[in-house]
Amino acid sequence: MTVYHEHDFHEDDFLYAHESGKKIIDKSYKATSYLKDVWSNFKKNKGAIIGFVIIVVIILMAAIGPSMNEHTYKSIIHGHECLTPRVPFLEKFGIFDGSYMGKDYYAIKGASDYYYWFGADTQGRDIWTRVWLGTRVSLIIAFSAVVIDICFGMVYGLVSGFFGGIVDILMQRFAEILNGVPTLVVVTLLGLVLPAGMVSIIFALMITGWIPMERIARAQVMKVKEQEYVLASRTLGASRLAIIFQEILPNIFGQVIITSMLSIPSAIFLEAYLSFLGLGVPAPLASLGSLVADGYKSMTTFPHILAVPVIIMSLLMLSFNLFADGLRDAFDPKQLNR
């Protein structure tokens, strides 16, 4: 038989925790606020952080890039057409030295005093300035469209879901019918009818853009409105509006942000699509889409004109997707370990 107790316990073998003089707080199960939780989940996601940094950098460049050199987005210098990129320091290493097909075209065209960091386009305009201006225009269009979508879609969904009954049926049928119209068709036709410009594009993008947000808002309301705490506020005499905005809205906050981040790339894409059809912002103003469409025309001879806007547009869309993915995981930790 084994001996279970090698020695007996004495009274002073154990100390009460508070008598030891140390303060002991249980840290492993410390309560954290919801947003702090989200942030700590978000931090773990490298892709999302990278996406976020790239977005910030691109937004900064869109803000200051166009005014970083002496060119403006519409200043044309004849003779400087299609010059390849030339950067002051890097030219010594044989890259970005403005040569094309082995010849120094800056010298041939008498532009040795000029530096076009991203090159010049087919009309002799500075691509650096135009690309960052185009990024600014694309971002403004995308952000405005998404903000309008979110606001309208949310109000529509909240009202439809909260009131229910015949209001809900009518509003849902309308949304379903509108949803059956392909965005491509809506955007194209409105682009045709409305005068060319940023406002028209934003308007065209929002016609069907609000529907996803509406669905999320409605589904959440349906889920939440039967719960006890909503009933409690109702019995306490809270008005319908107060219930919608104070009890229900905070519950869909996370999803609103995720949906809006996911809608921005698709807004940028649709804008670019419109520009490709020739229905984008009027020249000499530029957007990423119109720069891509212009660069495409000389793709085989001067690929650098196309490459710059394509790279920035793809980076931007990629970063927004990574960022939105990270946010989704952060707001919904149940999916994290997938």
Partner: peptide, 15 residues
């Protein structure tokens, strides 16, 4: 797949 979702199809077409 993240790149595929992000890069618009006509950019792929041009490439």
């Amino acid at each position: 797949s993240v790149i595929g979702v992000s890069v618009p199809s006509y950019v792929c077409a041009m490439l």
